[in-house]
């Protein structure tokens, strides 16, 4: 088909977290611009399998930009050259014939490589487990409309809640900091009336877990915001700082 491309891929291959990885070069031929980036890798993998070589392992699932499972650092940027997209929504029309594409896993101490391009992001789960919830049991809750929430607040909480937990913020940050991710959850509950009761203990618990996981700290470069596929704003980090400092400096942890 006309318009199809031939590309050179430099792909990070690593058997597991105990072995050292290296770049291997592959050719991806006759790639349609309508393919997604992952479909291009599917094509390469099918060829590898036919040749009896282990296919390139990468995480992916929904392929519609919402599950947050896909990752890939493509030519120096998380989720590739286009802003506001996940790798599964990145299409090959963003590349040109003859281009060399360097594909690496997310790099962070807190995200160890499992195999090739797949990394372990369970640190994110543990941060959420530390306090990313409201303490309510099933049943016995008030009627949904008994808590009116101003639309602007609900909308802002929603914006924060749209984080897909892909880890692009960590991958983009020169310090491998997870603050955009953590702040998005803290923000969602800090904004909503339902989240008020544990507002300050939540901020402290989640920040403590974030630090324990070995993420770097924020130097406000804004790279996370720029690379976030769903547009989580730096405002969230400011809010988290506010919540955390207020908690530490002005709130009693226990009544006395």
């Amino acid at each position: 088909m006309s318009g199809n491309m031939n590309l050179t891929l430099k792909v990070w291959r690593q058997k597991n977290d105990k072995t050292r990885g290296k770049f291997i070069t592959y050719q991806a031929n006759n790639i349609s611009p309508d393919m997604s980036f992952l479909e291009m890798l599917d094509v390469v993998n099918e060829e590898l399998v036919r040749k009896g070589e282990d296919p390139i392992h990468f995480d992916h699932d929904c392929r519609e930009g919402i599950c947050g499972m896909c990752s890939l650092h493509i030519n120096g940027r998380p989720h590739g050259p286009k802003q506001g997209t996940t790798t599964c929504q990145l299409h090959m029309r963003s590349f040109h014939d003859g281009q060399t594409i360097v594909i690496e896993p997310w790099r962070a101490a807190a995200f160890p490589v499992i195999k090739d391009l797949a990394v372990d992001r369970s640190a994110f789960d543990r941060i959420q487990q530390a306090g990313g919830y409201i303490n309510v049991n099933t049943g016995g809750v008030p009627d949904a409309n008994s808590i009116p929430i101003p639309k602007v607040i609900a909308d802002e909480a929603f914006e924060s809640a749209t984080c897909i937990s892909c880890g692009a913020c960590v991958a983009a940050c020169k310090n491998a900091s997870a603050m955009l991710f953590v702040s998005a959850k803290i923000s969602q509950y800090a904004l909503l009336p339902q989240g008020q009761t544990e507002r300050y203990s939540r901020a402290q618990a989640m920040v403590a877990q974030m630090d324990a996981e070995g993420f770097g700290s924020c130097t406000n470069t804004g790279a996370c915001e720029a690379e976030c596929p769903v547009g989580i704003k730096l405002t969230n980090i400011a809010r988290m700082n506010r919540e955390y400092l207020t908690a530490k400096l002005f709130k009693e942890e226990e009544p006395h």
């Binding site: 919830y133 409201i134 309510v136 909308d155 809640a161 969602q188 509950y189």
Partner: peptide, 22 residues
């Protein structure tokens, strides 16, 4: 009907009208 109550209590940010109701 209970599901909506439960989700709102958990902090699910459903769309709202200007009056603050769902």
């Amino acid at each position: 009907v209970n599901i909506i109550d439960q989700c709102v209590a958990q902090g699910v940010p459903f769309a709202r009208e200007y009056g603050g109701l769902l």
